[in-house]
Computed example of a mutant assay.
Amino acid sequence: MVEFKCPGHNQDPIPEEALKEAGVTFPNAYTDKNEIAALATVLKKYRDDVFTRVPFCVTVEAEAFGAQIKMGDAWHRPRPHGRRFSSIEDLSGIQTPDISEGRMGEVLDAVAILAESGEKVILNIVGPFTILYSLINFTFFYNGLRKNPAQVREIMAVIEKSVIQYGMEGVKRGASIISYEDAVGVPDVTGPEIYQDFSGPSSLRIINGIKEAGGTFLIHLCGRTSAALENTGMVRSYTIKAGKALTYDQALERLLDKLTQPIVVGHKCIAWGSMKMDQSLIWGIKLN
């Protein structure tokens, strides 16, 4: 049994000094490619990271599907503001969004700006249950899932297709790491049966789909996501020696330099980048 204690999302306020140095304002820092890139560059320095990281919230994909998002500011990250859909029947009409439009497009453009300037970029993406959480009250969602599972599978297929496209395009634009999480879709939230039948297999399809982008990049799974997959027998983990890396970011950077094909890693938090490692080990994830 793999155990992973989630440290929680880094929701600390963005330092005022960082905002001034980046020259950004809100909500543009969440919606404009140039300001996203500028803030990511400055935050990398303030956090003593190796990588720049975009976007700064987990609502970009949901907004592309029509979620009502309150943009926020330096103190509060973008978050759902009500739920657009009130039933599975309403939700079943969603279409795969154009990833070149809206905030998805701005984030992808920011990835390209950063990569072209020599930055090593992490693109953070989320899975279907996290997206659905911003679209529909989960009481309605679970009721619909029990009554019409086939309809839910159709909805999730549309979302999966979009997430795969988003991740693959991120790689094409120059992202070194695709960081994937579906924290709302883990068994202690969904229950073991829904996880086994819906959430877990959905994450596997997305991971496999993004790997098809080719090249040399990492898919980094949230520790909760990777632990859930291994504990249900969907993946297996193995250790990768990181050499004399001092921090987790440095270990990932060294691994990237050695890659000849995309690989998946997990069982750690991508937010641990600047933390010193007790053991210089990375956990590789092999999909069954």
Rank of each mutant, 00 (worst) to 15 (best):
I285Q: 04
M234R: 14
V50R: 06
I285P: 09
K5Y: 11
C222V: 01
S199I: 06
K286F: 10
S92E: 07
M277L: 15
P7E: 05
G191K: 07
Q68H: 12
S134M: 10
S226F: 05
L256C: 06
S86R: 13
E193M: 13
G93L: 10
L19C: 12
L259T: 05
V42M: 06
L255T: 11
F26C: 08
G215F: 03
S237Q: 08
S176I: 04
G8Y: 06
S176L: 02
W75Q: 13
F141V: 08
L43D: 00
S202M: 02
G72M: 01
T59A: 12
S87D: 03
F198L: 15
P201H: 02
Q196C: 11
T52H: 01
F140L: 09
K45V: 03
P187S: 07
D90Y: 09
L91V: 10
W283I: 10
Q151A: 14
R77Y: 13
D278Y: 12
G214E: 00
F4P: 10
L252I: 07
S117Y: 05
F26H: 05
H81L: 13
V186T: 15
K33F: 11
E3A: 11
K45R: 14
S100G: 13
L43F: 03
M71A: 14
F140Y: 15
T190I: 09
Q151F: 02
V189D: 03
R153H: 14
S162C: 15
F85W: 12
A175L: 05
Y142F: 15
N148Q: 07
E169G: 03
S117K: 15
G200N: 04
K44A: 00
W272G: 09
A64L: 11
V265S: 07
L229V: 04
F26K: 00
E160R: 15
G144F: 02
H267R: 14
K44W: 00
F65Y: 12
D49P: 00
G215S: 02
V184L: 13
N143A: 12
G66K: 06
T52A: 12
L19F: 00
V111A: 07
R47I: 00
I164T: 09
L252W: 03
L145F: 13
S203Y: 03
G273Q: 07
P55T: 02
D32I: 11
G214I: 01
N231P: 05
I178M: 08
K172Y: 11
N124A: 13
E17C: 04
T260D: 14
E61Y: 07
N288G: 14
V42C: 04
F129W: 12
L108Q: 07
T190D: 02
R205M: 01
D249E: 10
Q151L: 15
A18N: 05
P27Y: 09
P262G: 04
M234F: 14
P262F: 09
A29V: 03
K161E: 14
G266R: 09
Y238M: 04
S162F: 05
T52Q: 01
S203W: 01
A67H: 02
